[in-house]
């Protein structure tokens, strides 16, 4: 993966898959663009949890790695 942003876009990895976003996008923008706003999800950015209230202020950068998780059945 190139470490440079191209044409005002950045590429971040979300749940193991590359996603292209406009430069300057926040973690909240990403969650919203995936249709997950208001859903029970938690977000981890580069292996650190980002509390929900901090998502709008967290600007994403090229090559950031995110995990977006929810609760499922388990024992």
């Amino acid at each position: 993966m190139s470490s440079k942003s191209i044409g005002g876009e950045i590429i971040v990895t979300v749940n193991g898959t590359d996603h292209q976003l406009p430069s300057g996008s926040t973690a909240h923008d990403l969650v919203a663009s995936l249709g997950l706003e208001g859903r029970p999800v938690a977000v981890e950015l580069n292996e650190h949890v980002v509390p929900r209230v901090e998502l709008p202020g967290r600007v994403l950068h090229q090559d950031d790695r995110l995990e977006i998780v929810t609760l499922v059945g388990g024992g």
């Binding site: 995936l34 249709g35 997950l36 938690a42 977006i68 998780v69 929810t70 609760l71 059945g73």
Partner: peptide, 19 residues
């Protein structure tokens, strides 16, 4: 009750959630 933490489906995430 126990629950597990797993990646949210990024496509078709609108399905039912255990919650």
């Amino acid at each position: 009750v126990t629950v597990a933490v797993r990646r949210e489906r990024l496509l078709n995430a609108a399905g039912e959630n255990i919650l």
